[in-house]
Simulated assay, not measured.
Amino acid sequence: MSVKPAPSSALFAGPFALGTLSAPDGPAFPALVTPDAQVLDLRVAFGDDRLTTRSLLESWESALPRLRTLAADGGPGRRPLADFRVHAPVEPRQVFQSGANYRQHVIDLHVAHRAPGDDRPVKERRAEAAKIMDRRAAEDLPYVFLGLPSAITGPYDDVVLPAWAEQPDWELELAAVIGRPAHRVSVEEALDCVAGYTIANDLTDRATVFRRDMPQIGTDWLRSKNAPGFTPLGPWIVPAASIAHPDDLRLTLKLNGETMQDESTKDMIFDVARMVAYASQTARLLPGDLVLTGSPAGNGMHWGRLLRDGDVMDGSITGLGAQRTRCVAEAAS
């Protein structure tokens, strides 16, 4: 099942975006979506029944001018967006995820997890944490790990909370969508490899982040982050040219109408270019891949309120639109 987006949500910035849609009981197809909520089936426009959003990204340099022309044309063949179901905008082969990448969030964690016997005032410990963040931004490297494409779901689909997940939490994130192969690219080259941006909510079960049976092996991202549907994605891929300042976008997540996360990507320790460049030093990034850039302060653990059956999450990022997902307990699904 799915829930509709809030009626007041702006679609996106720029003249068009890419989506993956389907008519009732029909196959999913790549679509050009315009700000006035009209849809063009790109299989028809490109004369290719096998076309997907990912295959468009694989030929992004040649596809982009055609998409711009189609968006400006306003010709026949368009239908109302309301006639279609919206899916995750792309099926990536690889999902690169980042942790501890928002300055205030990490400072909060540093202060909250004080060492035994550390009785210094909070102000002093925050100042210490701020210096650590400054040093990290100047000298250290991003923290990147891998997620599974099978965890991705649509931007309005229900999210099933597994019965074993004791502490399911939200993490709204800006995601960069790769538009050309990238391997060992520099920071200066990195944004040239980004086709566009979308919204991701990187759900995490806090209770399984660390292995209880073998705490010495550290984090268990497979268990805590990769249940089916734990990464609501989209609704759109907005071309990079329409997002002038990806490092100055507002992220907002509301839980049942109450704001939980509200921060700018300016607070990121490592910006999009550094994140993409770093991931490419080891891996070969492929068209359609996602680079998630971390989540700001305001997660459920901060509020002492985790996700439960019936909760509705509304996530939005400046220029990228909004997603709305409802939580459904596994036993009730």
Score class of each variant (00 low, 15 high):
E128I: 14
V44M: 03
M260F: 05
A72R: 09
D314H: 12
E330R: 00
A13R: 00
I178W: 08
R50P: 01
W236P: 07
G257R: 05
T252Y: 00
Y143L: 15
D192Q: 09
L203P: 06
S2A: 08
L42R: 03
P228T: 04
Q323Y: 10
S9E: 13
L11M: 13
A23I: 09
R326G: 03
P121V: 14
R305T: 10
A45V: 08
D134G: 12
I199Q: 00
G304N: 04
P181Y: 05
K131E: 15
A6D: 14
A227M: 11
R180V: 01
F29W: 11
S55P: 08
D158S: 06
L40H: 06
I243W: 01
L42Y: 03
S295V: 03
K266N: 08
R85H: 13
T265I: 04
V291E: 05
N226A: 04
R184M: 11
T208D: 04
Q94L: 14
P162A: 02
C327H: 02
P296E: 00
G154E: 03
T208I: 03
H183Q: 15
Q94H: 14
L233S: 07
L18K: 09
K131R: 15
D192W: 01
L81I: 12
L57N: 11
R78T: 15
K4T: 10
R308P: 07
I107D: 03
H113I: 03
E171H: 10
D247F: 04
D205Y: 00
S264E: 00
A82N: 03
Q104I: 01
F96L: 14
V194E: 10
I152Q: 05
K225T: 05
W221G: 02
E188T: 10
E91S: 15
S8P: 00
V194N: 05
D314R: 12
D119C: 13
D267E: 07
R305Q: 13
H302Q: 08
D83F: 14
E171L: 07
K131V: 14
W164G: 04
D36F: 08
P5W: 02
A112K: 15
P149C: 06
G75Q: 06
A277N: 09
